[in-house]
């Protein structure tokens, strides 16, 4: 049996409400909140980035796995906001956790699905017998251009998953990846903010790739949506994951636990992984979990998990996602938010 032996998640404490952003740009807050189904989003502190978020999530993952960090043979961090253009985020993380130096480390990038890529490769290395444990992380401190629709959603957070063969808490039963060249969203080298193709990000991109991976997994597994207790899809806004769930035949009840986007925003590479962490926080042995990520450009990674008897033993060994999501928030006004996100030009 191969699967998740430990997991952790992290969200910054800072928030900005969609209403505050809408008022800044003269938009109707009610229309924005209704249209995108986003109430507020997380904002990284001035001292937080993809590396610090990954370290916080990974420390809880090691605690839950209760393993010697030295036994972890690979660490992969997926993000579109790695703090360095050249220098792997994982190199800092392994020294913070006491992993290595005999360890394989790499930074992954695939828009919003870099985290699930990291999870997939970590899982594959353990399954092949190449190493005992491997860690896959999805984390981001994503940016949306001022006044753009993305500014309401681009947020910060992440989750880490340690794959192993012993004391598996959530077995991975099936996976599937689905990719094509689809120019729905991109950021050119040297550009600060990403660009997107408006409505083209919907049917030809998000829905086509998620449904492609999802339908292939259902076919492979010979399972149907009703066989799952929970499902989580990439969450670029509140509406899309609900819509793709409905098109595939999942109910609102199956999506509810992992649907954290209205209060968290889109944590990009951390989006479906944090949703999965929220599900693992409450799932019971035997529960089946359906997850499909989406990364613009474009592709989707799908996983089918089944919780084991080990999961309840580790759930309380780390911080739970919804405890971070719904407690101790520090709300920012737009000026503070602009300062935190380096949107103000200043003299160096």
């Amino acid at each position: 049996m191969v699967g998740i032996v430990g997991y952790g998640s992290y969200l910054p404490r800072y928030r900005i409400k969609a209403e505050v952003i809408a008022k800044q740009w003269g938009s109707d807050p009610a229309a924005i909140i209704r249209g995108l189904q986003l109430n507020e989003k997380t904002v990284p502190g001035q001292d937080e980035d993809t590396i610090t978020i990954s370290v916080a999530a990974a420390r809880d993952a090691v605690k839950r796995a209760n393993i010697n960090p030295q036994d972890i043979g690979a660490v992969y961090i997926g993000s579109e906001s790695h703090p360095y253009a050249v220098k792997p985020s994982g190199a800092t993380l392994i020294d913070a956790l006491g992993i290595g130096p005999d360890v394989h480390v790499a930074s992954y990038e695939f828009a919003c699905k870099a985290g699930s890529e990291a999870m997939y490769v970590a899982y594959s290395l353990v399954k092949s017998g190449e190493m005992k444990y491997a860690m896959g992380i999805g984390a981001d401190t994503s940016q949306g251009a001022p006044g753009d629709a993305l500014e309401y959603s681009a947020s910060a957070g992440g989750a880490a998953f340690i794959m192993g063969k012993e004391k598996v808490a959530a077995e991975i039963l099936f996976t599937h990846s689905y990719t094509s060249d689809t120019p729905d969203f991109w950021r050119r080298e040297g550009e600060f903010y990403p660009r997107h193709a408006g409505r083209f990000t919907g049917d030809p991109a998000y829905f086509k790739h998620i449904m492609g991976a999802a339908n292939a997994m259902l076919e492979k597994s010979k399972m149907s949506p009703k066989d799952f207790k929970y499902a989580v899809f990439h969450m670029p806004n509140g509406k899309f994951p609900q819509e793709v769930g409905k098109r595939l035949g999942f109910t609102k009840e199956q999506l509810e636990v992992g649907w954290i986007v209205p209060w968290m925003g889109n944590t990009y590479s951390g989006s479906s992984p944090t949703g999965l962490a929220a599900i693992l926080d409450v799932a019971k042995p035997g529960d089946s979990i359906f997850m499909v990520s989406f990364g613009s450009g474009a592709g989707s990674d799908g996983f089918i998990f089944r919780a084991t008897d080990e999961l309840p033993k580790i759930q309380n060994l780390g911080v739970k996602l919804r405890d971070m999501l719904l407690n101790n928030q520090i709300y920012l006004n737009y000026g503070e938010y602009a300062k935190f996100r380096h949107k103000i030009k200043i003299n160096e």
Partner: peptide, 20 residues
């Protein structure tokens, strides 16, 4: 005690992490 960015060595220098 948490892991955070402490300072940046200028605009193009290294990022320094540590505890807060």
């Amino acid at each position: 005690i948490v892991f955070r960015k402490i300072q940046e060595d200028g605009k193009a220098g290294i990022l320094c992490y540590g505890y807060k």
